[in-house]
Structure formats: structure tokens, C-alpha cells
């Protein structure tokens, strides 16, 4: 195996920040979050699962799509696309499965999304394997693993005195060309994957459960706070709106933005005229669950859940997607 030391990793990262936008786990008032960093000193190398996924850096919570300028009757429209490369460091394996899931829709279904494609193309993902499953994690039940390198460009795994370095893609190899590594015998310890296996039924098993009382049982206490959707690495719903940023002297500057949206919100399906076709919490929870385990895999291939467990630990009323999955398995009698 190839091994690098923490010091070597730090000094390499300090060269990367000059050239790329670098995002890495940082301690923000006691919360570990993927955040932009200016030096390696800001990065934490020992952490559990960052509280939010990397979604914000590929499909930002708020993104300016177009800058529109109105001058009298004339309008000009400019696309807003970042021009620097981006490195996301310390990515947990499930957080690489997240974008891979969104790829199946935003890149592979025609027409590809211009902004997401652009962020994907400019981004390199450097992963950091988990030594174990954390609270709520069930990646191993949905095709992932704490040390899964799939969908990463480079995977780091902790070993005595440093990190084992696995280069996964060409893009990753290019980026880490300047990282000091030494060849060593042995292999990193396998992570412990203790934790309950969650049964995940295939999409067709869900079909007959649309009218089941599972949705009432779990959805009734939902607060429609939408946190499950915002913390989720695969939830991709968005809304589009205009905001006027400057107005005066015959010139109006407008930004067309897109913002995360949530099918779990009360007014998601409120139509012009006031009619709401998904008026209750249980039917909204049902849509979120069906989207992840039936519609998404049927329409685009991958499951819409990477097992990160964030929705479970974030839910203020303890709605637990693994309990939903248990019930679905029980009801479908397979």
C-alpha cells in the first residue's frame, strides 16, 4: 500500500488551496461540516459523519443560474458558471454515492443539467474511509460500505502513522501527483460494519403498499419541517425564482436563482388557484419514501438513498427511514 503522513498530507493540501476551491471537514462551533477552507490548519482529520452532505457544493442550496440585466427595453442574459476547479477533501463514502445518485438523473437523463454538470466536471472527490458505522448509518444495506472507494477519485484510509492512499480515477491521480507517499507492506484494517442490516425491498414490492397504513403510522407526527430532505445527499428537488438585486436609473439587475425544495413541505403541491394535491403529512412522507425506493430506481437506476442516516438523526420527531423499510419488508411478506 501507498502511505502518506499527516504532515505530508497537510503540506500537499496547502498547495492545493492556491489552485482550487477546497472544501473539507471543519469544526464549526462543535459541528463538523464540509466547509470551504483556506489552509490545511482548518481541516479536521478525525471526525464521524459530517452533519451535512457535500450536496451543497454540487447542487447548491441557493445558486444563481442567470444574471439578467434590463436596460430600458433591452435585456441581456448571462449564465453564472464558476471557473475554478474544486476539491472536496475528506468525503465519506456515502457522500460520494450521493452525487453518483444525482448523476443518474442530472447527467444521464436528457437534457443534462448545465450547472450540475459543470460542478461535477470541476470537482475532485478525495474520500476518507469510515472506521465503523456511525449513529444511524446503514450504507452497507444499500450498496455502500464505510471503506467503499466507488464514486470517489481518491480514497484515504487511516493506518498507523498516516493514511493509505488509493487512487481510484485518472482525475484523482492527476490531482495527487504532488503528494508524498511511500510504499509499505500490509493493508489497512477493515472497518467494523457492526450494526443492524436493514431490509430493502425491490421497487416492485412497494407498488401494493401505496394504500397501506404504514404512511399514516410514520407520517402522522411529521412536522413538515423538511430537515430530512435538506440533509439528504440525494434529495434533489428545486424551485426557481427571480430576485431583483439592483434597480435604478433605467437599469434593473435580476438574478434567476434556484433553491432546494422539499416534497415534504406543506405547499409543495399547492397549485395556482390554491388546490393542494398532496395535502397531508402521511402522503408526503409516502412520496419521499416511494421516490427513494421505487420511483428513482425504476426511472434512473440507483436507489435514492445511500444509507447515511442523516434524516434519522435530524428528525425532531424521530421518524426513522429504517423503521419504514422494516415495515415495508414485513408488509410485503418477502
Amino acid at each position: 500500500m501507498k502511505v502518506t503522513t499527516l504532515d505530508a498530507l497537510r503540506s500537499w493540501l496547502d498547495t492545493v488551496v492556491g489552485e482550487y476551491d477546497v472544501v473539507a471537514p471543519r469544526d464549526v462551533d462543535g459541528h463538523v461540516l464540509y466547509r470551504p477552507v483556506a489552509t490545511s490548519g482548518e481541516i479536521v482529520f478525525s471526525y464521524e459523519r459530517p452533519e451535512l452532505s457535500v450536496k451543497d457544493y454540487l447542487l447548491p442550496a441557493t445558486e444563481v443560474l442567470l444574471r439578467v440585466e434590463k436596460r430600458g427595453g433591452e435585456v441581456t442574459v448571462e449564465e453564472n458558471l464558476a471557473d475554478r476547479g474544486q476539491v472536496i477533501f475528506g468525503v465519506r463514502p456515502c457522500d460520494a454515492h450521493g452525487p453518483a445518485t444525482i448523476d443518474a438523473l442530472f447527467l444521464e437523463q436528457e437534457p443534462p443539467d448545465t450547472y450540475y454538470s459543470h460542478h461535477r466536471a470541476r470537482t475532485v472527490l478525495i474520500g476518507m474511509a469510515c472506521p465503523q458505522l456511525w449513529e444511524g448509518c446503514f450504507c452497507t444495506s444499500v450498496g455502500g460500505a464505510p471503506d467503499d472507494a466507488t464514486h470517489l477519485d481518491v480514497l484515504l484510509r487511516r493506518v498507523d502513522g498516516g493514511f493509505a492512499v488509493d487512487t481510484v480515477t485518472e482525475k484523482g491521480a492527476k490531482l495527487i501527483a504532488g503528494l508524498c507517499v511511500e510504499e509499505r507492506d500490509g493493508a489497512p484494517d477493515a472497518p467494523t460494519t457492526e450494526g443492524e442490516a436493514v431490509p430493502v425491498m425491490p421497487p416492485d414490492a412497494w407498488r401494493p403498499l401505496f394504500g397501506d397504513n404504514i404512511w399514516m403510522r410514520h407520517g402522522e407526527r411529521c412536522l413538515s419541517c423538511r430537515i430530512c430532505t435538506y440533509v439528504c445527499p440525494t434529495c434533489r428537488c428545486f424551485d426557481v425564482a427571480d430576485r431583483v438585486v439592483e434597480q435604478g436609473a433605467g437599469i434593473t439587475r435580476i438574478e434567476r436563482i434556484r433553491v432546494w425544495d422539499a416534497c415534504t413541505s406543506t405547499n409543495y403541491r399547492r397549485a395556482a388557484g390554491g388546490h393542494n394535491s398532496r395535502p397531508t403529512k402521511p402522503v408526503r412522507l409516502r412520496n419521499r419514501s416511494f421516490c427513494k425506493f421505487r420511483y428513482y430506481p425504476e426511472d434512473y437506476g440507483p436507489l435514492g438513498c445511500v444509507g447515511c442516516g442523516r434524516c434519522i438523526v435530524s428528525c425532531p420527531v424521530d421518524i426513522d427511514i429504517t423503521e419504514v423499510l422494516q415495515d415495508v419488508a414485513e408488509r410485503s411478506g418477502r
Binding site: F106, C237, F238, D239, R258, D261, A271, C291
Partner: peptide, 19 residues
Amino acid sequence: LEARMHCGIGKCGRCNMGE
């Protein structure tokens, strides 16, 4: 069919009826 829509290209999720 009429539905609330934000993208028109199958991405934003808003207009689904099942799959």
C-alpha cells in the same frame, strides 16, 4: 395535464405522478 412545474425537464421533482 396541468401541474405545478419548476424545470420542465424532469429534474426539479415537482410534477411527478408516481414514477
